[in-house]
Write a protein that binds this DNA or RNA. Structure first.
Lengths: 323, 323
DNA sequence: CTGAAAGCGCTTACAG
DNA sequence: CTGAAAGCGCTTACAG
């Protein structure tokens, strides 16, 4: 059997309450000598408080629920890791739920996390659908991590996607290769697309062709093949995620195009793998650690201000843009 | 406030016990009419049993603790995902702990997971050090997932690293480029190294040069640069992980070596990203899903036989070997 | 400074 | 078929 507080009390010759006072350093004072006896008993017996019992009694699990679409996407993995780090620093464990990206699975996971009594919920999701509110718990603070836009009624936090895309595209345009193509996932007209368009407008250059594909390596490969396989292929392309950019590099290779000589590429996200692609990717980096820190603070520190928090993206220049 | 069993009982006009009988479908029978009333009350009030209270009472959390070295390594992320999937199918949630790869952090995480009352522990780790046993919990079944060798006193499960490395190296040797180099992490003399050596012996060819480096893209880059930068560089190389192989590809690119023309490469692990490297990597794939399934079964189904279970690796032929 | 007792929300023997 | 009661391991007012 595992050792309980009662065992410690018996061994130390004190009441169970005193054991709690020592373990929690309060709320009642304990004589130094008594405390020493208790600590020795704890040491000898190897006592660890039962977190489940504490959670039930305190009404707090010291657990944060974190929902991500798909852990096999390095970006989500990076978010998971960052949230875990920050949470650990504050004495919280993270209950992570990967959902395959479906809204229904996501809702189900939110429900089970809530039933687990998590103290807070972080949703790193692309799906900020309105029916999400139905799965919200009154007592459980929640934040959407990594949304690009304001979500009515829900606190959210994300990178400046418009600015990031504009910067990335502008950098490409500055190389003077003319119109910049776009490989992008998600719904038409989202912020990265707007940023890409704005950069063209700023430069007085026509917007390049668009190819849409899933947010995956495969999606990037397909969209890239379409974009680059046609007659009027652009000399440069902005890609809405690193994962897709990896697919675009593959598409370029299959078509015999050299990057950056025949095709300049800038991607979005800034995950580690971009440092090791061939060539290394110039990318617009999301400040993942800062975002995770902000998200955890948002959800753990009550009344942390505004509903929507935007963090800046940063251009990381490497080889794929032809600099 | 969240709704409790007592609320449901009051609403349905029955005793709290009956609510439990309905929710758990036992252990006492309930009249159909009564059950219907209870179910309606549950529906109307939106009742969900408090998992924490259930855990405390049952002495079982329906939680599996899973320790991985580093979630930013796609292989570990894939294991995390696979374990999560299998566990979910069996009604378990997974408490995931990423450890930065250090033994001390790993032990600490094991302790906190145990304090959380996990029903079982899966350690996906490279560190099967003897002092691990000290952090084992008597009542908590445990399995080491992804160890290559037998660990005395601890049930473990892993791929046939020796066979996999031998197969991968043999495939390279069959191309007739002479001695095959090795880029490898971990301790000298481990099973992949032995397999690589055995393949050379089988073929009657001398073993090629070895370069050691961390199990990371960076480690592969450094080791690869050393191996390929010297005067007597091998024409082909076996790499002990995909991550390192990505680094080796980068090293080759920096040295102006074409893969596979100047250098043939085979790696180990078979994560998704190998399909999108440039060129696509020929790799020895670990059966991650099957391993996760076996690990969960090992730890949830009591008395599932042997202490050590080995699963076969499979060669996936793509472009980097020059086929 | 220390201890006896209530109660967190459940499950489940036990009695009716 | 239904209910009153004990108890899982804690925290924390309350009393001494």
């Amino acid at each position: 059997m595992t050792v309980t507080r009662a065992d410690v009390a018996r061994y130390a010759g004190v009441s169970p309450a005193v054991v709690s006072y020592v373990v929690n350093d309060g709320p009642r004072p304990v004589a130094a000598a008594t405390a020493a006896k208790v600590r020795e008993a704890i040491e000898v017996l190897g006592y660890r408080p039962n977190t489940t019992a504490q959670a039930l009694r305190r009404g707090s699990s010291r657990l944060i629920g974190h929902v991500v679409p798909d852990l096999s996407n390095p970006l989500w993995a990076q978010f998971a890791l960052a949230v875990d780090d920050v949470a650990a620093q504050r004495g919280y464990d993270v209950l992570l739920a990967s959902t395959d990206g479906g809204a229904e699975a996501e809702h189900r996971r939110i429900d089970t996390l809530a039933a687990r009594g998590v103290d807070a919920l972080i949703l790193t999701s692309v799906l900020a659908r309105p029916d999400l509110v139905d799965h919200t718990r009154p007592g459980v603070p929640l934040v959407l991590l990594n949304t690009f836009f304001e979500v009515p009624g829900l606190p959210s936090l994300g990178v400046d996607a418009f600015g990031g895309a504009r910067t990335g595209t502008a950098h490409l345009l500055a190389h003077g290769h003319g119109p910049v193509g776009l490989v992008i996932g998600g719904e038409a007209g989202e912020l990265r697309e707007q940023g890409w368009r704005a950069a063209a407008r700023d430069a007085g250059v026509a917007a390049g062709p668009i190819a849409r594909g899933e947010f995956s390596r495969h999606g990037g490969l397909e969209a890239g093949s379409r974009l680059l396989g046609g007659p009027d292929r652009p000399r440069s392309v902005f890609v809405s995620s690193d994962l897709q950019a990896v697919g675009v590099l593959r598409a370029a290779a299959e078509l015999g195009l050299r990057v950056p000589q025949d095709l300049a590429v800038v991607s979005f996200d800034g995950t580690v793998e971009t440092e090791f692609t061939n060539p290394q990717l110039t990318t617009v980096r999301q400040p993942v650690a800062a975002m995770a820190r902000a998200a955890v603070a948002r959800v753990l520190d009550p009344g942390t201000g505004e509903e929507r928090q935007v963090l800046p993206a940063e251009l990381v220049v490497r080889a794929s843009c032809g600099c």
